[in-house]
Design a protein around this nucleic acid. Structure first.
Lengths: 247, 247
DNA sequence: GAGCTATTCCCCAGAAATGGGGAGTTTCAA
DNA sequence: TTGAAACTCCCCATTTCTGGGGAATAGCTC
């Protein structure tokens, strides 16, 4: 039965075409899991974020107002804790995950007062994107059963992924430039901070040739410098962070 | 019953004190979910990684040998795909997640030949740490039921978290460089391909000052050029791709 | 007040990147 | 066989980056 719920949710999310639909789905599943509230969001200061950020929730309005007024997006203790793990966690575990400052205690007290007594948060991190999470919260005296946590973990991850798709956080690579092997190798080393001269030595080619490949690669991506080149290659998957950060 | 399995696993992982115990737990649960193999690892070239990296698995020995010989840790198509999502995915979804090169096709063919016919991978990303994942694979003709995927998502995340705890992967959250506002703004524009001179005009400061902030930012991250600077900032979340790709 | 950081400005010299030009071979497909 | 694309090398001029100095103001903390 629980499994059926999970699968239905997964399929419904994949079929959703608007954030509004996703919102509805989260609404329903939240209740079904025994929670009262959900909040799926990027950990940024949403009202002031320069780029489009995710946020759908049904938290109490006054909590949202407080949250935004205090710019808690990046500093909320639940969010901070979610930056240290990839597994979902009960809010009761917070003290084991981060050091709670006085300010944090105030925030938590305030959230309890707003009707968010207990909760479960599923982190959602993707290299190069804003940190995010999907939380489920319950009001006083309505503690959801521990048995639902594995389901919540799945629901949170699935919902976040669906939201990313709907908002178009990352368009799966469509018109990606085709790179030659040598061009790719040059980008790889350039992203690791190598100069054209160093790249030429690594690849055993002349300095001029390395420069040439970098020129061509910039041309393929339509960018004018190696920083943008590396970032585009990272974004479209031609490179990974593990490539670029290795030293 | 499935829920009971998940909970038991969760508790057992939390109680485990050695990687060996975790290995055993994964062994059992893998079978219980209808898979034959599991692999929990960081996406690095494990034998050559300078820092401690996670890897426990029961993949066939010849596959592991091939994997290491070819240094697939960072470039394996399944791993690459897992860098683009936070939700678990079937390997059959790979073509929708990344562009499969001929090399990728070869790798996948090789893995099938080694007995890894189909599988399900749960990404595990934490800002500032190596990308990782927990995969479950099945041999020919033994396709695990879709119903188990929500469970697999939970198991993968839980197991990865347990492994991190056991290995003592320290979160470099604390060591993440602290940037001043101006430094961050300079990185932001530099990642968007602006020169120091352009940045100075945008921020309304002198050219020299922009150069100065870039120097300091490089110093904070311990890197020597703006490409690495941008990549590091992207990786640890100080920047996002949405920032860097905007034109 | 001493010490720290952020912010702002300045100078210099060498290294590196960028944009422009050209030209040969090989390989693979139409 | 004709052509496209990859791979390789070379030259030039200009711009940009990087690393090394130094210094003033403001604000905050111990």
């Amino acid at each position: 039965m629980i499994i059926a719920t999970a699968q239905q949710f997964d399929e419904a999310v994949k079929a959703a075409t608007t954030m509004h639909e996703l919102d509805d789905l989260l609404h329903d599943i939240t209740r079904e899991m025994g929670f009262q509230h959900f909040a799926l969001s990027h950990h940024v200061d949403v009202p002031r974020a320069p780029q489009p950020a995710l946020r759908i929730h049904n938290y109490p309005g006054d909590w949202e107002a407080f949250f935004d007024a205090e710019r808690l997006g990046p500093s909320d203790p639940v969010h901070r804790a979610s930056h240290l793990t990839n597994a979902g966690f009960h809010w009761s575990m917070l003290p084991q995950l981060i050091v709670l400052t006085r300010r944090d205690e105030e925030i938590l007290a305030k959230s309890r007062k707003a009707g968010l007594t207990d909760g479960f948060t599923v982190p959602a991190h993707i290299p190069g994107e804003s940190a995010g999470s999907c939380s489920f919260a319950s009001a006083r005296g309505k503690t959801p059963r521990r048995e639902w946590m594995p389901l919540a973990q799945f629901i949170g991850a699935t919902a976040f992924e669906g939201a990313r798709r709907l908002v178009g956080v990352r368009r799966i690579d469509q018109d990606r430039p085709r790179l030659s092997d040598r061009q790719r190798e040059c980008i790889y080393w350039a992203a690791r901070g190598k100069s054209d001269w160093e790249i030429s030595k690594i690849l055993g080619i002349s300095h001029d040739t390395a420069i040439q490949y970098m020129k061509e690669a910039r041309g393929r991506y339509g960018v004018g410098n190696r920083t943008q080149l590396a970032i585009h290659a990272l974004f479209d998957g031609a490179l990974t962070f593990t490539d670029a950060l290795r030293r």
